[in-house]
Design a protein around this nucleic acid. Structure first.
Length: 506
RNA sequence: GGCGCAUUGGUGUAGUUGGUUAACACGCUGCCCUCUCAAGGCAGAGAUCACGGGUUCGAGUCCCGUAUGCGCUACCA
């Protein structure tokens, strides 16, 4: 039987990076085994589910390159099937109607309430399965239901025994029945609940391997019981270690904001392949230890056996813009930007420049060669795609900002530059042909004649031409920018020095 | 409270059946290169493998306990 896996997010917000990793692992497993990767949107919580969230999930997956097979399944569309299955279990006496009135719960304190109730049970030694309706006669139950009394449907967990299943990551798992409450399958308003819905849908979709977050590990026992009650084959399970915040707490939007959202990485200039590569290394490592892996290598090397069991900390520093996300992710992105095939990089740069009105159609045409050369030159020290429009702006537009620190370090520091730079412009204007080599020869000769260090002129030029204190080899920059623009920008320097004199800070 | 899972340098990980100085990547420090900053090269700091007991000639690797963290324990997903 061929392998079928699925990613089943609930559309209650942006795509969380933990969820994105689950999607990735499922996808990789399908690719590796020649199986199918399906997408199911678990939108049964109508209050919290939004279409916008569904869109963002699909977008995020597309961005990561995770294409799914077959049609998307919307869980809400299957509610009738879920209900029918629950009623069938009632008929078979594997589930029962619970006529206990629904208890009101306060959303904000549910977690706490649940824990307290559980504590009370364990302290008092009462069995959570004790329920006056559990053993109601069929006639009585049918009668009350027919009379219109509201009821929830609960699965009848046997009194004695235990469940067990083999988790592909966490190994053999066991749980006493006495630790499992008779779980509610259907709410008293007829709404099917999570555990029922997943199981029915997974059966329906013929899922063979359920790969998901570890937060579902203990609940899996309930699901195993359901599969058995339904007479279905229990799939294989593989639970993934959780991704934690730096304080080893839960990584959540409420507390940590946009770092946990996949779209943030797209919006802040990540190369999809880089982020995908980084994500793959959270909780998994290839056998040979190689960390930069192409998609093909990931697909080939991925295996459930190498997923480990301890949670991974996603390392970032809140309130520090320089370390806004995991440094290794940032490093990996830079690595991809400077080493990936330039043809693959260009479309991303094009998007970035377009978004900032820096793109000219000639770049795809007459100026293609120039563009390739320029990108190849500047990408060497960029970390994100954003850098192309920020630090790299001066390469694509005459309208760029000057970095203040660069101006004071490379321009204002030496008053001689006021006169030297325009003079250098004159010399460069006479240089023919104008290439990196000839520009270098001109500049060095000029420096020698004036008795100044070449570095002074080089650094001053860099700031005049690019607005930056750092950047590629200056002579390459001269050539890239061309004679005309280089000369113009060197001459435009005068205002800097005028302003400097007015302020009297020479 | 109960049950479950985890615990290797700051972070991500390797250490498959117990056996030399615990390996790699990111980050950090210094040096080289150099027109700056990266990249690259070289060197280095940083882990008594959570702690305490055992088993053994020998344990990060096996056993027990403790601690800490996380998860689950809903008519949420």
């Amino acid at each position: 039987m061929s392998i079928r896996v699925r990613f089943a997010p609930s559309p209650t917000g942006y795509l969380h990076i933990g969820a994105a990793r689950s999607a990735l692992f499922n996808w990789l497993y399908a690719q590796k085994t020649g199986g199918k990767f399906l997408l199911r949107i678990e939108d049964t919580d109508l209050q919290r589910s939004t279409e916008e969230s569904t869109r963002s999930i699909i977008e995020g997956m597309k961005w990561l390159g995770l294409d799914y097979d077959e049609e998307i399944v919307f869980q809400s569309a299957n509610a009738d099937k879920h209900r029918a299955a629950a009623y069938k279990l009632v008929d078979e006496a594997k589930a029962y109607r619970d006529f206990t009135p629904k208890a009101e719960r306060d959303d904000a304190t549910v977690k706490q309430g649940v824990a307290e109730r559980a504590r009370a049970h364990s302290e008092a030694g009462t069995d959570p399965r004790d329920n006056p309706y559990r053993d109601l006669t069929k006639a009585e139950s049918d009668h009350r239901a027919a009379a219109g009394e509201a009821f929830a449907v609960r699965l009848k967990i046997p009194r004695q025994g235990k469940t067990h299943f083999e988790d592909l990551v966490f190994g053999p798992q066991e749980r006493e029945y006495s630790e499992i409450e008779d779980l509610v399958l259907l709410r008293s308003d007829g709404h099917p609940l999570y555990n029922l819905s997943v199981v029915i849908d997974d059966i329906e979709m013929r899922i063979t391997h359920v790969i998901r977050g570890q937060d579902h590990l203990t609940n899996t026992h309930k699901q195993v019981l359901l599969y058995e009650a339904l007479g279905a084959v229990v799939p294989q399970f593989a639970h993934l270690p959780l991704i934690l915040a730096p304080n080893k707490g839960k990584l959540s939007k409420r507390k940590h904001g946009e770092v946990v959202s996949l779209t943030t990485y797209r919006d802040r200039g990540f190369v999809p392949a880089a982020f995908r590569n980084f994500l793959a290394l959270l909780g998994w490592a290839p056998a040979d230890g190689k960390e930069i892996l192409t998609l093909e290598e990931l697909m080939e090397q991925f295996s459930l056996e190498h997923i480990h069991r301890s949670p991974a900390v996603f390392n970032f520093q809140e309130n520090d813009p320089r370390h806004w996300t995991d440094e290794k992710a940032l490093w990996m992105n830079a690595e991809y930007i400077r080493t990936m095939a330039i043809d693959q990089l260009i479309p991303m740069v094009r998007n970035e420049l377009r978004a900032n009105k820096l793109w000219r159609e000639e770049y795809d045409d007459d100026d293609r060669e120039w563009l390739v050369k320029t990108i190849d030159l500047i990408r060497q020290r960029f970390f994100t795609l954003k850098d192309f429009s920020a630090q790299g702006r001066a390469y694509f537009s005459d309208d760029f900002d000057f970095d203040e620190a660069a101006v004071s370090k490379n321009l204002k520091k030496d008053p001689q530059l006021r006169e030297l730079l325009p003079a250098l412009a004159d010399a460069l204007e006479q240089t023919d042909p104008f290439t990196a080599e000839s520009a270098e020869a001109t500049l060095r000769k000029f420096a020698e004649e004036r008795g100044v260090k070449a570095g002074l002129l080089i650094n001053g030029s860099r700031t005049m031409l690019t607005g930056q204190a750092v950047g590629p080899s200056m002579f390459e920059v001269f050539e890239i920018l061309g004679q005309k623009r280089s000369v113009e920008r060197l001459r435009s320097g005068v205002p800097w020095f005028d302003a400097m004199n007015e302020l009297g800070d020479v």
